[in-house]
Design a protein around this nucleic acid. Structure first.
Ligand SMILES: Nc1ncnc2c1ncn2[C@H]1C[C@H](O)[C@@H](COP(=O)(O)OP(=O)(O)OP(=O)(O)O)O1
Ligand SMILES: [Mg+2]
Ligand SMILES: [Mn+2]
Ligand SMILES: [Mn+2]
Length: 798
DNA sequence: AACTGTGGCAGCCTAC
DNA sequence: GTAGGCTGCCACAGTT
């Protein structure tokens, strides 16, 4: 039955909370909640949430007087709505502060600037907390949680609902509609130019099975394609839009093309166009009422195991690849489009691209959802936010729950060097039956065990009336009571990670579900460790170098103690890094673990048992085979993204041969054959690509770096060519010239008459990679390279 | 003047 | 967040 407008009848709105933005009603900002319901999307407004920040009185000033003063202070036209004295806690002590309520979030910057400049104000706090996130934190409203809202029709905004009560279920399954799209652009040059190069294909794929491939007619512009894509998005009305590298390519390109045609890409749920803004080096894209995720951004942050993060490789990692796309190079899109025979192929591939982007998002969504809920960020922000800022939001929310006032962000301590973990010298060679023991969640556990937290830190010379923990070497002290600000959060994260590990153990290895959980578990591990790193980070709100320094000092102390205990119990300690010890298998191992766990406040666990373990002799470099038959490699070239695939494949085989047969001679023979194959030109180009990240503008390098010079050369060769800073540069080495950097070529700029330098790949890639492992067995690099060694030359001549 | 060997260092990436 | 390995460039020294 239809309700009377403005009546008191309540409505129930249910769905997944997608995002919160705000609308301005009579000069006031009202948070607007977007719910993805079973059928429709709902919005509801919050009429009673006000933007605010804090002003802390200077030593000489009293809070109530300051409140009065601020109340009468204006910044230009802008006056505070209200100033009230509140009691908050800081460093475990009570503090009176002035809570400054603004009429509108837009007034906050001017007010805080004005207030900060006043002598009576020591600092302003939490003035950088965005209004909508502030709302979510203060009301404990979690994005991407199933949400039920009791609402009444609004008197002030016709047709809108006003929230009376919000209820959420964090566990309940959510069902979001996803829609991925991917653009192919006609590019006569390698880097397309949005002012002239049209979009030729837009592929679309939804999680309901919907697919569509839009193409540009040969005789017409891409105007209609752009319109059709926008219309499709509007009509399919997805909750979440998905791209792969859409932040920096598809979205800006689409908007630029629309602008060329004087049209708008109206894809927002309110009919608005996407908002694209520069966020550091990246662009950030917001679409009103929808989530927007970029598979590339998520992969960058959450899939560190994928070294070169192309769409295909990330998709493959997540088990959602759609067949082989070799030969379809985005650099040659124009050529392929113009070739009638290949166009069909292109369309099929384009559809696969959208499907893969979709698959990536589907697999990573549960993790994103957890992160968003924990940090009070919507999907768009939460899927892009770095670990440090995640930690910051975590802490801000905890601060609110505990009535803690966040520290002044501007008063940070700068950067200070401090000592980290210890690494033992490994004995080169093969070892049998080795147990790899490792403390679980070492730094976070140390922090929990010793109540390490910026607020429990007792500076030198300060007396405390309670027990304190004192860190070895650095002598930093921490109150034993009450619980510090970090403790509960860290314990929760440690426990949640434990739950994930248990959940994983129940799933059979190899399944995608388990792999996804492993990704999530690793992400939580890194987030947990980020709380330690956060304290030493100069950009942190709760920066505390003594906390970070004390944590690593305890870490060194405990690992040293574990090593000593192992020695005492007659175990052979082979190696250790930060929180691990590798010991020879022994009856006493179990007793050793028990003794360590009895004595120390953190837990030592068996990470792996190796029947065979090989050390090159360098720290952080080894390969082992576990009793389960898995090969574990650390540090060696096979783990790195900046060595060519061929060299890594050779090294992997050398490692496998060594670990399974302990037969270095066979491994050597294999390596020599691999060198010969390279000399004979039997290795495909793609296996010889070397990838390195471009970390700055090529012009800015102080020495000539191969990957930077390759980009530089491409720029000179082709007007408008750009390789974004932060992108991985794939290059090969050709054989004419002197310095390697002069011989590096981007694959798309390899001239017809240029030959790869087999000697470079032999001497600088394959042989070093193989030799890293084989040198221990006395193999000589020249020998591996198939060249007479210096020794044999001398023999021959002498 | 051109070449070779070496050590310092920038750059990159990985293990914790 | 710190520790660490390794490559390639480059300056510089010591040849040839
Ligand atoms: N990404 C990181 N950022 C900051 N500190 C880190 C990071 N990775 C490792 N560390 C530090 C903190 C860790 O507690 C310590 C030991 O690393 P590691 O054993 O790999 O993880 P962990 O002990 O935290 O978890 P696990 O239970 O898996 O062993 O090294
Ligand atoms: Mg460890
Ligand atoms: Mn594509
Ligand atoms: Mn550990």
């Amino acid at each position: 039955m239809p309700e009377q407008a403005g009546s008191e009848a309540t409505h129930t709105i249910e769905g997944t909370l997608l995002t919160v933005d705000y609308v301005t009603v009579n000069g006031r900002a009202w948070p607007r909640l977007w719910l993805a319901g079973e059928q429709d999307t709902h919005t509801a407004l919050v009429s009673d949430f006000e933007p605010y920040f804090y002003a802390v009185p200077a030593e000489s000033a009293e809070a109530d007087k300051l409140a009065h003063t601020l109340q009468r202070t204006t910044a230009g036209e802008i006056a505070p709505e209200r100033c009230e004295v509140v009691t908050r806690s800081e460093d475990l002590a009570e503090l009176e502060a002035v809570r400054v309520v603004a009429h509108h979030p837009g007034n906050v910057p001017a007010l805080r600037r004005k207030f900060r400049s006043m002598d009576a104000v020591a600092s302003t706090r939490e003035d950088d907390v965005l209004f909508v996130n502030r709302f979510m934190v203060d009301r404990d409203v979690r994005p991407l949680a199933w949400t039920r809202i009791e609402a009444t029709e609004s008197d002030e905004v016709p047709g809108a609902m006003e929230v009376d009560a919000i209820e959420q279920d964090l566990e309940a399954a959510v069902d979001l509609d996803l829609l991925a799209f991917d653009l192919e652009v006609y590019n006569p040059h390698v880097t397309p130019d949005a002012s002239s190069d049209p979009i030729v294909v837009a592929s679309i794929a939804g999680d309901d099975g919907y697919t569509e491939v839009l193409t540009k007619p040969d005789e017409a512009s891409d105007r209609e394609l752009v319109q059709d894509l926008a219309r499709t998005i509007r009509e399919r009305d997805p909750d979440v839009l998905v791209t792969y590298n859409g932040d920096n390519f598809d979205w800006p390109y689409l908007v630029d093309r629309a602008e060329e045609h004087g049209i708008e890409v109206q894809v927002g749920r309110d009919g608005s166009t996407p908002e694209i803004r520069q966020a550091g080096r990246d662009k950030a894209v917001t679409v009103t009422g929808r989530g927007n995720v970029d598979g590339y951004q998520m992969a960058q942050r959450d899939l560190p195991d994928v070294k070169v993060q192309t769409l295909e490789r990330v998709a493959e990692h997540l088990g959602v690849d759609e067949g082989d796309h070799d030969g379809l190079d985005s650099a040659n899109m124009a050529e392929i489009w113009d070739d009638a025979d290949r166009r069909e192929e292109l369309l099929a591939y384009a559809e696969d691209d959208a499907l893969m982007a979709l698959g990536i998002a589907e697999n990573l969504l549960p993790l994103q959802r957890g992160l968003c809920q924990r940090t009070y960020q919507d999907l768009s922000d939460g899927s892009r936010m770095g670990r440090g800022r995640q930690a910051d939001w975590y802490l801000l929310a905890e601060a609110h729950r505990r009535n803690v006032l966040a520290p002044d962000k501007r008063a940070h301590q700068g950067s200070a060097d401090y000592e980290g973990g210890v690494v033992l010298e490994p004995p080169a060679g093969i070892h049998e039956d080795v147990v790899y023991l490792d403390f679980s969640s070492m730094y976070p556990s140390i922090m929990v065990a010793h109540n390490v937290s910026p607020d429990t830190y007792v500076p030198p010379g300060v007396d405390v009336d309670v027990d304190a923990y004192e860190a070895p070497e650095v002598d930093h002290r921490f109150r034993a009571e009450p619980d510090g600000f970090f403790k509960r959060l860290l314990q929760q994260l440690i426990d949640q990670r434990g739950d994930l590990k248990e959940e994983m153990a129940d799933l059979s290895p190899g399944t995608q579900q388990r792999k996804n959980l492993a990704v999530e578990e690793q992400a939580i591990k890194v987030l947990t460790n980020a709380f330690y790193g956060y304290m030493g980070w100069s950009g942190a709100r709760w920066q505390s170098v003594p906390c970070a320094e004390a944590t690593t000092a305890w870490g060194r102390h405990f690992i040293q103690r574990a090593v000593d205990m192992a020695d005492e119990m007659g175990l052979e300690v082979l190696y250790g890094d930060t929180d691990s010890v590798m010991v020879g298998e022994d009856e006493a191992v179990e007793a050793f673990i028990d003794a360590v766990n009895e004595e120390l406040p953190i837990e030592l666990e068996v990470e792996a048992r190796f029947d065979t373990l090989f050390f090159t002799g360098a720290k952080k470099r080894y390969a082992g085979r576990t009793l389960e038959g898995d090969t574990v490699v650390r540090g060696l070239e096979v783990r790195r993204g900046d060595w060519c695939e061929y060299a890594k494949d050779v090294q992997q085989t050398v490692i496998d041969t060594l670990l399974s047969d302990q037969n270095p001679d066979e491994a050597t023979r294999f390596a020599k054959d691999a060198v010969q194959a390279l000399r004979d030109g039997e290795v495909p180009l793609e296996d010889l690509l070397i990838h390195k990240t471009l970390t700055m503008d090529p012009e800015d390098y102080s020495s000539k770096q191969p990957h930077a010079m390759a980009v530089q050369r491409a720029r000179e060769q082709e007007e408008g060519f750009e390789a974004p800073i932060g992108s991985k540069i794939g290059y090969v080495i050709v054989d004419d010239g002197d310095l390697v950097s002069e011989r590096a070529r981007l694959i798309d700029f390899l001239a017809e008459d240029e030959e790869l330098d087999a000697d470079y790949y032999i001497d600088k890639q394959v042989v070093p990679a193989a030799h890293r492992v084989l040198s221990y067995f006395g193999e000589d690099e020249d020998e591996l390279a198939g060249r007479p060694s210096q020794a044999s030359l001398r023999e021959w001549s002498g």
